[in-house]
Nucleic acid binder design. Structure first.
Lengths: 233, 233
DNA sequence: ATTCATCTTTGCGAAAAGGCAAAGACGATT
DNA sequence: AATCGTCTTTGCCTTTTCGCAAAGATGAAT
């Protein structure tokens, strides 16, 4: 499927493509192909040669690193408008992680060899890309700080609040995280075990902070959760 | 002090400036000023407005985030040739961390407002910058994985090996880490306490892996340390 | 309605790491 | 050589978190 058949306004709204001329955008889209990902499908896999890079149009992915002994760590999430899989831009020949769709998703894909042409197409595109990666670096540093200094409960609180911010949806019971999340998922986001996450969230439930069931989390009292995450003790 | 008085070959060797024309390099250097940092001095401080960005010429800095309650985390190190303090490129108005010289250091400094001109000066410069930031992101993700899945001893082993790689110097006793490192420093790099680091390293010393004294670390047996860091067992 | 796979909860004991406090060691300075 | 500030080590006890195992719950598929 050719990318230039897609809804233009959708694409225009993506931060990375703003301030580009129509013509440049046409050219960039002409190079792209479209990739549909079912839930659980992966855009690329850790260790594979990095032949493509992507931009997410809609849906949501998690980027997972697997350790040699099989433990998994979610290093970040990909939201609509994000570019991802730009291993080539870092002169890497292989993907350092796996990108898995956690809901059905749609992405644009370009050949890695087109990266330079892609960037050359517009100076603002390069600046935008740099800014995107820079923001990610900030986020990563925040997580390093959290993992280094905070105890499990606060880390889990942060993770849940982040999910709320990225995918929170108001319902009459509270703010629903709008895609399936298991205890295991949260454990992989916070560097702990599903058991510990379960214990923490059961305690929160008793305090009326959240309400959760299988693969579902609803935050009842974001403010108290925030206080818990920020102010130690 | 004007930057174009500096030794050119030194600057040419810095990865970020490679593939630039002499003329562009002249222009870029004309915009820069030179900053000397004594040991313990800081190039910028967390929370300050981000008025400048830098490129390290020689020496070594640590980039530290301080939590509200005063705990410190070393998020990364800056080595010669690295650009740092590019908060502006990420549309941040304040520095998110503090950069402290751990040995006497020398850096180039530009006004943040010149960032776009700096990038526009050469398309390869933008690509280089992107690659640099991308590499840092990879490193950050590795640390997130380590902090999430590894126990203290292995994290410390990784940190020490990284120091060896970045600043190892062969001596007849073993590989010396060529700048002052305290237990506290290593603790801040690995998300633990100086006590635990001390205990770990005392054990290593008994096994003949390292030899250390006040602010000094010598790795005697890098290979066994590597095995310890990599193979869980 | 029943079955089945998957996800979640919970109890118990073990291990890892932290916190505190005190003592020791080192090196720079006077 | 004596002093002083800083860095390091160590013992002891507490807390946090994990690991394992088993039981319970949920929802999709038949």
């Amino acid at each position: 499927m050719a990318a230039n058949k897609l809804d233009r306004s959708l694409i225009r709204n993506l931060m990375i493509f703003q301030q580009m001329s129509d013509e440049d955008l046409d050219n960039v889209l002409a190079m792209a192909s479209v990739r549909q990902l079912p839930e659980g499908g992966s855009a690329f896999t850790q260790g594979e040669p990095a032949t493509e890079f992507f931009c997410l149009l809609n849906g949501r992915l998690k980027v997972v690193q697997t350790t040699p002994d099989g433990q998994q760590v979610v290093v970040r999430h990909v939201n609509p408008g994000d570019i991802f899989g730009i291993a080539k831009a870092m002169r890497r020949t292989e993907y350092p992680a796996t990108a898995v769709a956690i809901v059905e998703s749609l992405a644009l894909a370009w050949k890695s060899t087109q990266w330079e042409a892609f960037i050359a197409r517009s100076p603002t595109l390069a600046l935008n890309a740099l800014q995107t990666v820079g923001q990610r670096l900030q986020d990563a540093h925040s997580r390093i700080r959290e993992l280094s200094t905070e105890e499990v409960e606060r880390r889990v609180a942060h993770a849940v609040l982040r999910l709320v911010q990225q995918a929170g949806k108001k319902t009459d019971e509270g703010i629903l995280i709008d895609f399936p999340v298991t205890r295991q998922d949260i454990a992989e986001m916070t560097g702990t075990t599903l058991h510990t996450v379960s214990r923490v969230m059961t305690a929160w439930e008793a305090k009326g902070l959240v309400q959760s069931s299988r693969k579902k989390v609803i935050v009842i009292d974001p403010h108290r959760l925030y206080v818990l995450a920020e102010h130690s003790e």
